[in-house]
Nucleic acid binder design. Structure first.
Lengths: 198, 198
DNA sequence: CATATAGTTCAAGACCGCGTGAACTGCACC
DNA sequence: GGTGCAGTTCACGCGGTCTTGAACTATATG
């Protein structure tokens, strides 16, 4: 979601969401991966973060960075950074199969966690901040003489609006939590170890 | 909201949200206007759309394009385009005072309308599309032989996820609708005429 | 009609985030 | 030590969006 339906409306020009050519991905995989990429971009993340997660989730079994690189046609460095982010958010796990030297990466079940997590962050660091700003403005305005009563009421209303948005957001986050459940259990079969227990 | 808390976390580097220097805005006005700008940017609109609306809302009375230009330190062309957008979304009204030649612009009550409206659009044009993509992928996958049962289940789950997100979104939109009420009635006092009844 | 001012449009440029690719680190194996 | 591969970091460039500023249209006024 960049500049989508914004300005002109112009319903005819729907940017194509069709998947581009891929390396060795099966067509249906490409579509699904791309779909996740779109969703995730929609939420304000990087499209490729979504694509990587999507691929890992779809494949079910942990992939190496090199495989991801090939399948999604990304650069080495890019994959590294994307994985770092995903891992950091806890939606991807770095695992090592017993007598192999390379790291592999597995999708954690819920992308939703990532979304909610970060939406929470945004909310905390932001909407809160907005409210603070508004009440600050109100304080200042009260201090100055000659500010019409009406204006104060308007400021107040803006704050109310922020409150509403905040409450709605919280609600949204809460309901989003309805988890998709733990499919992944399948390959947490003990054949893998987590990062840290090296 | 650009790249905010994304990658590194790094809580120390909070980009300053403090208002920049302004023309003749009172400090408290500047803060409030900037706050709206931030919120609106957060929602995926242009910061300046928010600032313009904020100014108009705060002032209560219709302003000319020139005034907006000066107060917010924007270019002529920019103001024109911003106002067009806002008007188009129905959050700003173009009015003309009786024996004056210039257009003035007044803030419609609820910004929320704008947000919900567009969020709806996004949702309609997008999440729906995602679902379509996913079921398309599923169809394809079923067609091809040898696609493991497990993978189909994963696709299914992704679709479920999309459903959840959609439902949550709808809920969110609904609760956001709690309107802030009609303050604006004040200057719809008959002294103004609407565009079109010229 | 000439002039001035309000308003619109659009090409050029500023700006910014993302991904690339090369340089680097770390580690294993010979 | 040397070679090779996995993984990380980062300066740069591409591609996108937003804003500007100038050219243009529209409208009122003398």
């Amino acid at each position: 979601m960049k500049g989508y339906l914004w300005t002109g409306g112009d319903p005819g020009s729907q940017k194509s969401l069709a998947p581009p050519v891929h390396g060795r991905l099966a067509p249906w995989e490409a579509i699904a991966v791309e779909a996740v990429g779109n969703v995730i971009e929609f939420w304000g993340f990087k499209r490729n973060q979504g694509r990587v997660w999507g691929l890992l989730y779809l494949r079910g079994e942990p992939l190496t960075a090199g495989e991801i690189e090939r399948e999604l046609d990304l650069s080495k460095g890019g994959v590294s950074m994307l994985l770092r982010d995903l891992e950091h958010w806890g939606v991807v796990q770095r695992v090592r199969v017993p007598q192999d030297t390379v790291w592999r990466y597995a999708a954690e079940t819920d992308l939703v966690r990532m979304v909610t997590h970060v939406v929470e962050e945004r909310e905390a660091a932001f909407v809160t901040r907005i409210r603070a700003d508004l009440s600050e403005a109100r304080r200042l305005a009260e201090g100055v003489g000659g500010v019409h009563q009406e204006k104060l009421r308007r400021l107040e209303r803006m704050a109310v609006l922020a409150d509403h948005v905040e409450r709605a957001l919280r609600l949204f986050i809460k309901t989003s939590r309805l988890d998709v459940g733990g499919v992944l259990g399948a390959f947490r079969d003990g054949a893998l170890s987590r990062k840290g227990e090296r």
